[in-house]
Design a protein around this nucleic acid. Sequence first.
DNA 1: GTCAATTATGAAAACGTTTTCATAAATTGG
DNA 2: CCAATTTATGAAAACGTTTTCATAATTGAC
Lengths: 342, 342
Amino acid sequence: MSKTRKSQENTILDIAAALKLSPATISRALNNNPNVRPATRKKVADMAGQLGYRRNNMALGLRNNKTHTIGLIVPRISMFFHAEAITTMQNELYERGYNLIISQSNDSPEMERRLVDTMYSSRVDALIVSCTLNTEDFSHFEVFTKNGIPLIFYDRVPPAFDGALIIRGDDFQGGNLAGAHLAETGCRRIAYISGPLSTNLYRDRSQGFFKALEVAGIPVIENMVFYQALTYDNTREAMKKMFAQDVKPDGVFTANDTAAIAVHEFARENGIAVPQQLKIVGYSNDPRCAIIRPSITSVEQFPGKMGSRVISELMHILGDSTGTALKNPITIPVQLIRRMST
Amino acid sequence: MSKTRKSQENTILDIAAALKLSPATISRALNNNPNVRPATRKKVADMAGQLGYRRNNMALGLRNNKTHTIGLIVPRISMFFHAEAITTMQNELYERGYNLIISQSNDSPEMERRLVDTMYSSRVDALIVSCTLNTEDFSHFEVFTKNGIPLIFYDRVPPAFDGALIIRGDDFQGGNLAGAHLAETGCRRIAYISGPLSTNLYRDRSQGFFKALEVAGIPVIENMVFYQALTYDNTREAMKKMFAQDVKPDGVFTANDTAAIAVHEFARENGIAVPQQLKIVGYSNDPRCAIIRPSITSVEQFPGKMGSRVISELMHILGDSTGTALKNPITIPVQLIRRMST
DNA sequence: GTCAATTATGAAAACGTTTTCATAAATTGG
DNA sequence: CCAATTTATGAAAACGTTTTCATAATTGAC
């Protein structure tokens, strides 16, 4: 009982002691260094197995100044888009021998700031970020660029960031497709329910959307445009307001799918026929869009493709240390998925 | 340009040098050790800010043999249940000053094994796991118990594991509620589409379900029971088989919600009225159940509550090192959410 | 069998912290 | 103002690796 706390001896020094070799040799043997005799290599491997040796990554990281760990910060892990993107990134990183530390900011800039600090303290080899909806000051990310650690933004990105790579969906195009599609299917009074313009996402979708209306010669109706947090309740509220007016919309574009579903349910509950009286287009192609009846037209963002691109660019950066990218920002195309709601 | 690679000097030694103090004092000052003069404390804090100092967690972990990091392994991050549980766990851990490393096994036992090793190499302070569907050999988790590092299984758990804490939903009760509910609403030929019995989840749900039938005096119909991977396609296949027979089911219990949705869509496409001709009960209360029409009755597992419990138990274990728990396994109650499908 | 060349091993330092023990500085009591 | 006490600081070791440089062991050529 008076034995020291340590439950089991399993370091390189223990192997060394057991084999009467130096730690240096053990290290070399375990790392398949060519100039260690096959005989010793085998002895070491055996003893390592016997003692249940596992490399201590902290010691390794400290010594080598490299952790083989990538940090990731997203607003919410549960959003379909991110869940999908994360899965791809993690798998591709794992294949390449990297680990991924995932954190969520819960859309709080304060939390995001703390997480960035923590990530730096853990000395991740790179940081991947999709920002908070409300992040307007991006200075907390500078620790990374200042210290020469790769920083990649994706999806929700700053307008510009010196030394960082930016990868984003083609939101202008997405908004444009949505607007054009609604116009094409005959809508003339198109409502637009958007998120706050503080984020690049919604700014770009809006611009694309309005451009489409302009091209189609459809006027923007002042009180049919909303910029607000895209929650279910907010959207219901907006719908209520619009349908209390004399002139009612015959089409709605919502800048995410939760809002589209809110519109959908509002319509059903109020006996508004979709798509006959009201057409709906959402954004993100959440699986719920395909399940609800009538199913909802939405803009697919290819989260897996984006995640994959993030990793391939990152690997490129980590390989060549030849500074920043070839092309920046990078834009991933989107696609309109037509369904029964239009 | 011939300057050494290191982009910026920012260790405790640099602060020490700048202030002509010893690293020991700097360390104390930064950690609010009571016996360092307020004046020096302030000088140190200022200089730390000026140099952009950030603590190196690897050095810290190596020295203190404590990483303040908890490992988590789940089959898939994108499953609603896990996304929800993870979010709760991460938030509660973060409040308590811990970080969370999340990894997904993609339901591959091989991958799971590798992840466990990696987690150990990173010397996490504890490991939380929801196993693969196919994990039958649990020996790879023994590194943790053998080395006295807390190990907690939740949701998909081994039948028993010496030295680990097990927290699970009340799957027997869930299956039982589902069966009883279908019986109560008048079903007499109840089909059961389950996952493979290799997992505790499905074993327990099955037992609860069959018990309910037995109590209600409803016979189990041989060819209306399926044990298979609970995918959309498999379920459609099963439905097709059953409805090709003379005697057709008037109720279905599926052991997850994806399967319930498959049943639902099969019914719609084949003109089977839900709930009049066929009643459906799913499992997990995925948000899709509430959105689809008619909405689907399902068993709520309270993922947030389970995540929360995992963390509170973990904190207890990390606090007192008084070995394993008071009560083990721990069971979290479930609840049947009635909707239009029954 | 000797010398040179090669190959295998070891000693020691370094990575950035914290902490124990010792000691220097400041404070207090008389 | 001196001794005794308290408080603030410093020196050095330790955590577990890897790597450089040196040296010991082996091999090969003649």
